[in-house]
Nucleic acid binder design. Structure first.
Length: 549
RNA sequence: GCCGAUGUAGCGUAGUGGUAGCGCAAUCCCUUGGUAAGGGAUAGGUCGUGAGUUCGAUUCUCACCAUCGGCACCA
């Protein structure tokens, strides 16, 4: 026995044992649990001096438990809970008897887990469970899990033909026409937003001489996670960029920069590759090849606050436009291992905090979790079913420009290294699209939908008119598919509904004669008849991206 | 990377120590039908990869690869 805390929606317990649990063990353990609950064993709480508890658990061969207790400060007492002849260390409180636990629990999964969360330690066997006040709550939870499964981006990605992945390109995404349309729509939206906000978009190389990464400090820390390219006739080693900052600094360094040019905001949809551990890969959410909506703002110390503030506004507006209203912010401060003087950290943290407040954001501190070169804020959004995703970030960096020799001429005529703000709104495009898919369960708002309108004919006599309607919709900038398949209306309605196409225009002889369309909206029963021109302008208006309305 | 599970046609699945079924999709034919599956026919897999056991393996064993659930990691 090692440790078993309560967690969100349930609990887990870690065990040190030779043979791992198997899925078959779970029902057996559940039965045993029910037996114990049924027995209604009374709870008894005892308070022991820490050292007594350490000795006791050592004595009965519970080494992990003894180690755990030994890490409690000496001189403190610990509480031990008894149920019948069973006892364990616990902060409590517990029910009066095991009978009060009830039946609303379920063991959900098995996993390996490291002792004290450290991969250097022994691996334990973990059992996860969920527990609720009553059956109804448990069922509601299980239903929620099923719902989450239904909107899994990997499943929907297949169903909507958005992308695929395969063995020959592990951790990288093949974007299909539909998926890439979604990608471009998102990318163009961000491109317009940052354009308004005074960013300059650039494009930098994918391969750099390893020396650059040594200079930036990344090689030391991350070379094991970097892809390296070597060519026979070339003596130098090239590394595929895992991030864009050094490249952006090279652009900054071209020519002499004056303080008058600051803040200089360089943005790139930067393709990065990182050799992520195999076990970390997850659909398109965690990949080895990804694109960041990256930008670096080169500025003076004085400009940090304003730049941070306007970035927060930019980010929140973007999240709102993309359908996310609930955002939490964490401010991570100086870590133990860091560079730069405390005075500079004071300045950076102060500026960041002030700016975050100025942007009207509530935030919590994440002390000691900042990057080694500076503090950062992280933006976590909440999706339609309450899950949280960390996407955006802003980091204040006093280090990299200096290390890579970037300077500007200040008002005083001297050279100074600029402050560099690393920032991303969506973070990784791949991951964010994954989040969008799950947030909307594939039912995207019209402006994002890969296919916005399906035109389906009832009879072949309407084919000519349908082609005309499709052409008119396309001319209005809408993304349209034409379905003249030899099938029933029922079948076509079903197909396009399952494809999650937001609008379906059904055309038969009636429509062709009157130059009208019959519009059915996804998720709405029934349909309305509209004049062709009216329908097109209505749909075109609805399809305008939020920033262009 | 670690622990465990999984890997069968485009997708979803069944099954077996003697060379694989089903549904959807696809193709063709019939049907031209008004808002969530009209009917029929045809074609498509050698069962993740490699090795071993065996007279014989998709089925058993091992290794590898990938995926999935966690752990660890995430510049």
């Amino acid at each position: 026995m090692t440790i078993g805390p309560a967690i969100e929606d349930g609990f887990y317990y870690d065990f040190a044992r030779e043979t791992p649990f198997t899925p078959d063990d779970l029902p057996k353990i559940e039965d045993k649990m029910r037996e114990i609950i049924k027995a209604g064993l009374p709870t008894r709480r005892e308070v022991w001096p820490r050292d007594k508890a350490v000795e006791h658990f050592k004595g009965i061969g519970e080494a992990f438990k003894a180690e755990l207790i030994a890490s409690i400060p000496a001189g403190e007492d610990v509480s031990i809970y008894w149920h019948g002849d069973w006892h364990d260390l616990c902060r409590g409180p517990h029910f009066r008897t095991t009978a009060e636990i009830g039946d609303a629990f379920k063991l959900t999964k098995i996993s390996g887990a490291y002792w004290r969360g450290d991969a250097k330690n022994a691996q334990l066997q973990r059992i996860y469970g969920t527990a609720w006040r009553d059956k109804k709550e448990l069922d509601a939870y299980l239903t929620r899990m099923e719902e989450a499964e239904k909107r899994d981006h990997r499943k929907i990605g297949k169903e909507m033909d958005l992308f695929h992945m395969q063995e020959e390109a592990v951790g990288q995404v093949f974007w299909h026409p539909n998926g890439h349309t979604l990608w471009r729509t998102l990318e163009n939206y961000i491109r317009r937003r940052i354009g308004e906000a005074g960013y300059n978009e650039i494009k930098t190389p994918l391969l750099f001489d390893r020396k650059l990464w040594e200079q930036s400090g990344h090689w030391d820390t991350f070379h094991q996670n970097m892809f390296v390219a070597e060519v026979e006739d070339e003596s130098r080693t090239l590394a595929v960029k895992p991030m864009n900052c050094p490249g952006h600094i090279q652009v900054f360094k071209q020519g002499t920069k004056s303080y008058r040019e600051l803040p200089l905001r360089l943005a790139e949809f930067g393709s990065c590759h990182r050799y992520e551990p195999s076990g970390a890969l997850h659909g398109i959410m965690r990949v080895r090849g990804f694109v960041q909506d990256d930008a670096h703002i080169f500025c003076t110390h004085e400009q940090i606050t304003d730049e941070t503030k306007s970035f927060c506004e930019l980010l929140l507006r973007a999240y709102r436009d993309l359908g996310f209203d609930q955002v939490t912010v964490k401010l991570s401060t100086r870590p133990e291992k860091r560079i730069g003087s405390d005075a500079v950290w004071d300045l950076a943290e102060g500026a960041l905090e002030k700016a975050t407040r100025a942007a009207g954001l509530d935030f919590t501190f994440n002390h000691g979790e900042g990057a080694f070169y500076g503090p950062k804020i992280e933006f976590t959004l909440t999706d339609a079913i309450g899950r949280e995703w960390q996407c955006g970030t802003l980091q204040v960096d006093f280090n990299m420009p200096d290390r890579l020799g970037a300077t500007y001429i200040g008002e005083d005529g001297n050279k100074h290294p600029p402050v560099m703000l690393h920032r991303a709104i969506v973070g990784s495009m791949e991951r964010f699209i994954g989040v969008l898919i799950e947030h909307y369960a594939g039912k995207f708002p019209l402006w994002l939908a890969p296919v916005q309108v399906a035109v389906a004919t009832v009879v072949a006599d309407a084919d000519t008119y349908a082609a005309e309607v499709v052409a008119a919709l396309k001319a209005a900038g809408l993304r349209v598919v034409l379905d003249t398949e030899n099938q029933t209306v029922n079948y076509k309605v079903r197909q396009h509904s399952l494809a999650k196409t937001p609008n379906l225009l059904v055309l038969g002889r009636r429509e062709a004669e009157n130059r009208t369309v019959t519009l059915r909206k996804l998720g709405v029963e029934g349909q309305e008849s509209l004049a062709l021109e009216a329908a097109i302008s209505k749909l075109a208006a609805e399809a305008v991206p939020p920033d262009l309305r």
